[in-house]
Structures are given as structure tokens and as C-alpha cells.
Design a protein around this nucleic acid. Structure first.
Length: 584
RNA sequence: GGGGCUGUAGCUCAGUUUGGUUAGAGUGCCGGUCUGUCACACCGGAGGCCGCGGGUUCGAGUCCCGUCAGCCCCGCCA
């Protein structure tokens, strides 16, 4: 039906006859002469219809064409007249002079335009999702999905070269009590019983290690029934990796090699170095476990100097065991009151009651905090003229997120230059547990993390102080992946589950199959899962995951194109032994 | 579950602050003219549940209450 892609036609083909098939992108009817822009996945090509080279039927047909009609044309590639060349178009030096034209299919006037005039905003996200096939015809989205394909191809090649085997794991799995809410799938054969869609192939990949597949990889779909964000979809894809007889360094090595190759595929500068930082240091210096290290601004502890001021709020915070930490913004004194308020608001949203600040103007310190400065305070804090000091007082669990938010907002407000174009970071040594809030322990990562050997003796006495052999991969402030070394000893795994509050019977019912496997001779193993959607979004410059997913869900977890989910007929439910009432 | 922003012609948006004649623009669509356009140009035309429901008012796109949807954020997401 076609002999070339529209975007592939160039001057070297001049004089030869081509057959092109695609969509009518635009049409310019000059009366005696009609120009068509024909679009396919490879690009856009101008075709012209005129009485000297087009058949009567082609001339007739071309007048009735509308945008997005599907056509096939036959004609000769012709250099355009010198003055009619279009340097803004990849194929702008040539056109196809239409000899024959066949209309393969008609299109209704599109609900949203595929062609977008310069300066025109994209249609609303709602309409783009509702009319997804039209939206996907845009070059921008096609390029993103093509990049995603090339990235996945490189992933498979890379791991294949490294001796990994890709193995599929079940989509119908067993519900797990830990972590996110499961999507449940009823079993017709066993009324009243349910499968769950996998939140990740975590346990299966461990079972594969025990089975002796010492290097496993899978591009795996995962499902979590939780509320969404710009960087979170209910179904998403992970590069799921697991290997036996490995240390964290082995995992880092594979991931670093992979990321360097993927950056190359994406054509972006995003190679090494990969910095490493402990969770503790990340929280101390940046207030976040996924700091954006492209910017140098760091948090410092000002408890000693500021706690000594005659300022009751600060004294009180320190007396209660908290600290006064803050950010010194070089030249920050030029920020307006409004800008500082916005930064403070960011800190409040992150959970701080407020943010104190001191401006150094000439030699005076002003602002809610500056007013309390003593003669030597400025010097002891190392503040220079035109600096702005932002401070938060309280327990670290409150000040860290607040200062993280303030740091991000300050970088934006000051327009701070990046110290580097991209920043890769391994964050290591996460705590194994966190306080669930009610005094019980919750897994910080998931329950399948090996405790750090130096801390294992604290499991019973001070579990919150136990670090795990877990690590996150962070790129420019985005968490791209997360992994750990897993406990391969059944007794240790059982102990961890017990610390999380599971009863022995519960452990057996829910995780018996894993523990039994661990008892059968499990090798030491560990791995990581890397978020494909986030990776593709970051590497393609997409603002939202929706722009690298062909058919994404809305923030309310709906599919607008096909219209899912939907209620089902009572008879279908009855066959599954399900009755539906009001949700809680 | 909570907070914020948005919802007006097929699409992108004005108009809402301060209620008042027939709700506008660009683009697209329909008809016409046009042989070198590429955001073609020019002439003419059609096109509106102002998201939905209720209220206040002589009168509501505009004010109030509720609700739905999209987006962003908090909770949540190992």
C-alpha cells in the first residue's frame, strides 16, 4: 500500500514515484492548486494536487478531504521551487505531486485537534484522555512512546548480556497484608475466594532465587489500589531485578551500567557519577530521603547559637529535645516579603507550624528571628550581608520535611543555578522499621529487608534503630528505584514478621509458602525494582506519567476513553457469589 | 478522607472582581472565490443546558449551598 514513510521522503528520491499512506494533517486549498500535509508515524510530507499532474478523480477527491481522513497517494517526488521550500519542515525541500489518490477511510471532524497551531494550549487533560486515540496521533506523544520502547529494548539487551533471565510471574496472586491495598479478583471456581493483582513480584522473584535462577529480570506490571498523584498510576511498570550471592554493590553496579546505557539511548547527558549518601545524612543535610542534588543548598544545625537567644519558642523547642535547623540563603535578602511567605507556606504544608527568618540588610538583622539577634549572633552563624536565614525548630521528624519543602521553594524563588545538569544518588541504610503511630512497628520499606549486620543485635531491644540493607536510586530528586538484600534465613524472616505484629498463625497462613521455600536451601539474594514510567517520563521530559503511558488513568483512577470501571450486572456478581453494598 | 485550582461555542480562551439589553474573540466547521501554499488569503454563514441541581433576587455565566468531573497537593502509597 505504501513504498515510503511520509517523513522519509527527501531530495535524493526526487524523480521517483512513491506511494504514501497516512492521515490528512492539514489542507491548503488555493483553488487551482491544493496542498495536503500527509502524516504518518514517520513524519509529515507535503503533497500537491494540480491539473497538470493529478488525475481528474484525484483532483475531485482531494477537494472533499477533511483533516484526519485516511488516504493513500501515488505520485512523483518533486523538488519544490526554490522560493517555496520550507526550512522548518524535515521534508520541506520536496513534495509529492499526486497522480492518484484513494480515500481509505473518512474521519469525523476530530473532537480535539491533532495539529496544534503555535502558541495554542493543549486541549484539557480530560478531553485528551477522553479522545486518547486523537491525542496519541500527536508526534510528541508518539515520540515518547517510541523512546519508552527503545528504553525497554535496551533494558532487555543489557540484562541478557549480564546473564539475567526474564521470567514472567503471575498476575493472579495471593493478597498480602502488608503495604498498599490490593486490587482483588474474584474466583468463579471458588466462590467467595479472591486473587490479588501483584503490588510487585516481590515474593515470586525471591522464590525464583530459591529455585536457582540466580539472575532474574522482568519488565513487570504492578497494581496498587491507592490514591494517585502526578507521579503515581494504579497500574505501573517496573524493571524488576533479583540476583543471588550478591552484595548491594553488585546491584549498584548493574543499575549504574544500565542507567548509563539508557541515558545514551535517550540521548541525554545523565551518566555517572552516582553519589552515595546514608538515609541519616540525607535527612540531616536535605530533610529528604530523595534530595535533588543538582542544587547545593544544605540544611545546617543552628541549635547552639539560636537556642541561646532570648526567644521562648526556640528555647522551648530545644528544651523538649528538638533542634533548630535552617537554611542560609546567600543573597536571599532580596526576596520580597511575599516570596518569603510563599516559602513559609510550603514549610507549613509540609507540617511545620511556621518558619522563622532573619534578613541581613547592611549590618542589621531584621525579621521575626533577626530581631532577636545579639551583637555576635550574625558572626557566629556565619551570615554575610544580604543573606537570608530560614529556621525551623522542633523534632527532626517535623523540621526535616519542612526544611525540605523550604529548600525546594527557596531554590525556585531565588532561581538558584544548578551545580550540575543531573544528579544520581544512592540512598542507603534506611531504618528497617518505622513507628506506625500507635506504638506498633511498620515496615519502612517492606517486610523482606535484611537487617544491617551491625544492628541485628538491636532487633528486640531497639528495633527503630535497626538499619536495613536497603537502598533507593534517586535521579534529580525523583525516586526511580528501590531495593534491598532480603533475609534468606527463615527464622530471621519469621522474627521480622513477628516484630511487625503478626501472630504465629497469621505468619504461617500468609507467608508459610515463602518460609517453607526459605527452609529448603535459600541462597543469599537481593535486588531492586526500577520504575519504568517515571524513568521514561524523566528521560523524555514529560511532566506527567500520563504522557508516557498510552492509556493512563485519571487522578480518580478512571479510564476516560473506554470508561472503566463500570458496575456489573447482578447476574455476573451472583455467579461469583458476590453481593455489593455501600462501601465504607 | 481533607485542601486548592479549573469547568462558558467542536477546541483554546475573554467575560465572574462591582448581578442588568441579544454572552464575545481566535481557531475549527459549513458555503463561496483563489495555481506555490505551508497558522494560505479573502467574502459569507451556522454553532451556547455558561458542568449539573437547588437557593437568594424584579433579574444570575456573575452571589450562596450542594454535587459531578479534570488537574495539583496532604493523608495514603512497604
Amino acid at each position: 500500500m505504501r513504498s515510503a514513510g511520509a517523513g522519509m521522503v527527501d531530495l535524493e528520491m526526487a524523480g521517483s514515484e512513491v506511494r504514501i499512506a497516512g492521515w490528512v494533517h492539514r489542507r491548503r486549498d488555493l483553488g487551482g492548486l491544493v496542498f495536503l500535509d500527509v502524516r504518518d508515524r514517520s513524519g509529515v510530507l507535503q503533497a500537491s494536487a494540480g491539473p497538470d499532474w493529478s488525475s481528474g478523480s484525484a483532483l475531485e477527491a482531494v477537494r472533499g478531504l477533511g483533516v484526519e481522513d485516511v488516504i493513500a497517494i501515488r505520485g512523483v517526488v518533486t523538488p519544490r521551487p526554490e522560493e517555496a521550500r520550507n526550512p522548518d519542515m524535515a521534508t520541506g525541500d520536496v513534495e509529492v505531486q499526486i497522480a492518484e489518490l484513494e480515500v481509505l477511510n473518512r474521519a469525523r471532524t476530530p473532537a480535539i485537534p491533532v495539529y496544534r497551531p503555535p502558541e495554542e494550549e493543549l486541549p484539557s487533560e480530560k478531553l485528551r484522555l477522553r479522545h486518547r486515540v486523537l491525542d496519541l496521533r500527536r508526534r510528541e506523544l508518539q515520540a515518547r512512546l517510541e523512546l519508552r520502547h527503545r528504553l525497554m529494548l535496551a533494558v532487555r539487551n543489557y540484562f541478557h548480556e549480564e546473564g539475567f533471565v526474564e521470567i514472567e510471574t503471575p498476575i493472579l496472586t495471593k493478597p498480602t497484608p502488608e503495604g498498599a491495598r490490593d486490587f482483588l479478583v474474584p474466583s468463579r471456581v471458588h466462590p467467595g475466594e479472591f486473587f490479588a493483582l501483584p503490588q510487585s513480584p516481590q515474593i515470586y522473584k525471591q522464590l525464583l532465587m530459591i529455585a536457582g535462577f540466580d539472575r532474574y529480570v522482568q519488565i513487570a506490571r504492578c497494581f496498587r489500589d491507592e490514591d494517585l498523584r502526578a507521579d503515581r498510576q494504579p497500574e505501573f511498570t517496573q524493571i524488576d531485578v533479583e540476583a543471588s550471592f550478591v552484595q548491594p554493590d553488585d546491584i549498584y553496579g548493574w543499575c549504574e551500567g544500565l542507567m548509563a546505557r539508557l541515558a545514551k539511548v535517550a540521548g541525554i547527558e545523565a551518566g555517572p557519577p552516582f553519589t552515595r549518601i546514608t538515609y541519616h545524612d540525607a535527612m540531616e543535610r536535605f530533610g529528604s530521603d530523595r534530595p535533588d542534588l543538582r542544587y547545593g543548598l544544605e540544611i545546617a544545625d543552628y541549635s547552639e547559637v539560636l537556642g541561646a537567644l532570648d526567644f521562648r519558642i526556640l528555647q522551648g523547642a530545644v528544651a523538649r529535645g528538638g533542634r533548630i535547623r535552617g537554611l542560609r540563603l546567600e543573597g536571599g535578602a532580596r526576596l520580597t516579603r511575599k516570596q518569603i511567605d510563599a516559602i513559609e507556606q510550603a514549610a507549613r504544608t509540609a507540617g511545620a507550624p511556621g518558619l522563622l527568618w532573619a534578613k541581613i540588610q547592611e549590618d542589621r538583622a531584621t525579621g521575626p528571628l533577626g530581631r532577636f539577634f545579639r551583637d555576635d549572633t550574625r558572626a557566629r552563624l556565619g551570615l554575610a550581608p544580604a543573606d537570608l536565614l530560614l529556621a525551623a525548630a522542633g523534632p527532626d521528624r517535623m523540621t526535616s520535611p519542612a526544611l525540605d519543602a523550604a529548600r525546594t521553594a527557596s531554590i525556585a524563588a531565588l532561581g538558584l543555578p544548578r551545580a550540575t545538569g543531573h544528579a544520581w544518588l544512592w540512598v542507603t541504610g534506611f531504618p528497617l522499621f518505622e513507628d506506625a503511630g500507635d506504638g506498633t512497628l511498620a515496615a519502612n520499606h517492606h517486610p523482606f529487608v535484611q537487617p544491617h549486620p551491625d544492628d541485628i543485635h538491636l532487633l528486640d531491644s531497639d528495633p527503630l534503630a535497626v538499619r536495613g540493607l536497603a537502598y533507593d536510586l534517586v535521579y534529580n530528586g525523583t525516586e526511580l528505584g528501590s531495593g534491598s538484600i532480603r533475609p534468606h534465613d527463615a527464622a530471621l524472616q519469621t522474627r521480622i514478621l513477628a516484630l511487625l505484629g503478626l501472630e504465629p498463625g497469621e505468619i504461617e497462613t500468609k507467608f508459610g509458602f515463602l518460609l517453607e521455600a526459605l527452609r529448603s536451601g535459600a541462597p543469599p539474594h537481593g535486588g531492586i525494582a526500577l520504575g519504568v514510567d517515571r524513568l521514561a517520563a524523566r528521560f523524555s521530559g514529560a511532566a506527567s506519567l500520563r504522557d508516557v503511558i498510552a492509556f493512563p488513568k485519571t487522578t480518580a483512577a478512571r479510564a476516560l476513553f473506554e470508561g472503566a470501571p463500570v458496575p456489573v450486572a447482578a447476574a455476573d456478581l451472583a455467579a461469583l457469589g458476590i453481593s455489593v453494598g455501600a462501601a465504607e
